[in-house]
Write a protein that binds this DNA or RNA. Structure first.
Lengths: 186, 186
DNA sequence: TATTGTTATACTCTATAACTATA
DNA sequence: TATAGTTATAGAGTATAACAATA
């Protein structure tokens, strides 16, 4: 990515203050949840909602969403990571990876450097300040996660294993040939 | 909600075709996930992402997101449910419950009727067509969920229980007084 | 004065499509 | 021709704030 001639165009995604996107999904007394109470999928959604809110609380000092945190870890552990690969790892479109990277660089967490072997691509790296900040943030996230595990008692490790397997099972169902939603076949 | 004098203003949220909001988050070979692989929270996110995509596939014929499906079940099981209560059950702001209800009514799933005991409020009800459609949709969702459980084998029921508990644990952490993020204290 | 729902508006996240530069 | 990234734009979801009607 050596000599592009675009206008300077810094994007508009610079505003900080990532708001909590969802409130806490508390069971409302007197409301009948019907089917939902028995569904694995709904239990998962409730758990994820609660975790999201709690992650936000535990990391409020950094103002980084779970997704952005994941991106930081990936860049830290894979210096020179391409934007496109980052997006792929996170299930994002190219343009989404761009916005994400814009935010990380605008906030001083990361920077784009030339990729040595491909002039079209960037290699992503944490800044020195980003590395320092991430060390503390990772510690906070790890502590947060341990607290949840502790709250689960002996069920904890089994839950983690079952979740990993569930992701695998659901992915397998989605990508089984006869289940694949047919793309437009022109 | 008897005689309001607002302009007719049907909202602009009528367009159907709810797109899949996220792609599949597949582990990318050669990328080091560091901390993330060990986190309960990240496992949960991966599982939820995979389930979301699979739910979409399994219910493509209805074009209803998981959230809208949940709203339909809640209305079906609680005829006359208030918009505000619906929002509360789903962790939404009043205005979000409004948009959601607008969509459900515009698509013919539900309708607003006067609440008998409070002229400010609506009571939400499924339409006759909505009830018929929901019966089939619920069957499809239940089958989808059973397929996932089957894929988990003997771990399945324990996973469900652990998820319910996890939601509870995370909620408890977020709402413990000393953890509560302090609101602006002017 | 508080609550229910509405309106107007803004911000975030994500996607599509057309584009530049490079492979 | 295909790929990496960018730009412009649009759609969905959610939030805040001010408002009307009713409690």
């Amino acid at each position: 990515m050596r000599n592009k001639t675009y206008p300077d165009g810094m994007s508009k995604t610079d505003s900080a203050a990532a708001l909590a996107p969802e409130g806490l999904m508390l069971p409302v007394p007197g409301v009948d949840y019907g089917l939902l109470d028995g569904l694995l999928g709904y239990a998962l959604r409730r758990a994820q909602n609660a975790l999201y809110v709690d992650f936000h609380r535990a990391t409020a000092a950094w103002d980084v969403s779970p997704q952005r945190f994941a991106a930081l870890v990936l860049i830290a552990r894979n210096p020179g990571l391409r934007q496109g690969l980052l997006g792929q790892a996170m299930g994002l479109h190219r343009s989404g990876a761009l916005r994400l990277t814009d935010w990380l660089t605008a906030q001083g967490w990361a920077e784009r450097r030339d990729a040595p072997d491909d002039a079209r691509a960037w290699g992503l790296h944490l800044t020195a300040a980003g590395k320092r900040r991430l060390a503390k943030l990772e510690a906070a996230v790890a502590a947060h996660d341990r607290a949840l595990l502790a709250g689960l008692g002996e069920q904890g490790p089994a839950l983690k294993a079952a979740l990993d397997r569930l992701a695998w099972v659901a992915t397998a169902q989605s990508t089984t040939p006869q289940n694949k939603p047919r793309r437009q076949t022109p």
